[in-house]
Simulated assay, not measured.
Amino acid sequence: MSDVSPDENHQTPLTRPGFIVSAALILVLIAAVIVIAFIPRGGDEPDARSNEPTTSETTSAPAATAAGVEESVCGLPASDDTALGAAPESNWELVGTMAVPEAPETAGPGVVDDRGFRTCFAHSPTGALYAAANLLGQGSIGDEETQRKLLEQLTIESAGQQTALENISEAGSAPSVQISGFQLLSYSDSAATVDIAFTLEGGAVGHVSLPLRWADGDWKIEVADDGQFLNDPVQLNDLSDYIPWSGV
């Protein structure tokens, strides 16, 4: 990966050779997860509980709070906070090729199935952040079963979801991409936008924004009508605008 600083010909970041290579790798990852899935990473070896449920799965509809918002499908605590000004203290675990955060009793994932698939995040800014990070980690797993689960369980039902499901294909492993920081761009009872900064193994840095909605007691991604799973990743000059947060 090449340097991301401006060159003497004043090329824009999108046209620099280093960016083109980095973006191509990211798009490979993205394609590896649901039509335009996304990037992945590295980290420590997962511990023994990674393949065990952290709580019992719930099949009944989640209850509604006094404000009319559905409670977490697995009973994780909600929060009235609407901002996240500092990085939460987190345990990190390798999922696919990316290190992702976990706090199963407070932020999530509250449910990890027997194949390690992670769902149920708290109705809070921290829960939204953890949901976004874990979704990217699971996006680094390129097998068709995981891609289908991501679409069926962690995206909003829509025409875009159906388009993505119709275009699932087996994907290979993705190059190492690691979470490096975040911004919580917006947050409300019903929606959040989480901006995740990442570093590729060659040192280039970039970011991607994830639009989340609270639905059926969990944070889920909105898929565009064309089946695009994430907004296009964009390269950054540095990470100065982001709250540092990393598991490696």
Rank of each mutant, 00 (worst) to 15 (best):
F121G: 00
H123Q: 13
P125M: 06
G127L: 05
A128E: 04
A128I: 07
A128S: 11
Y130M: 10
A131S: 08
A132K: 00
A132C: 08
L135E: 01
L136C: 11
Q138F: 14
I141Q: 05
E145I: 12
I156F: 09
I156Y: 07
I156V: 15
T163N: 14
A164Y: 02
A164S: 13
E170T: 12
E170D: 10
A171Q: 03
A171E: 04
S173L: 11
S176H: 06
Q178L: 08
S180G: 05
G181T: 05
G181A: 10
Q183N: 15
L184F: 12
S186F: 03
D189I: 05
D189M: 06
S190C: 06
A191T: 12
V194T: 01
V194Q: 00
D195Y: 06
I196A: 02
T199Y: 04
L200C: 08
G202N: 07
G202W: 05
G202L: 08
G206D: 06
G206N: 07
V208A: 02
V208T: 04
L210K: 01
P211H: 07
A215Q: 12
D216I: 08
D218Y: 01
A224D: 15
G227N: 03
F229Y: 14
L230V: 11
L230I: 13
N231V: 09
D232L: 11
V234L: 14
N237D: 15
L239G: 00
S240C: 06
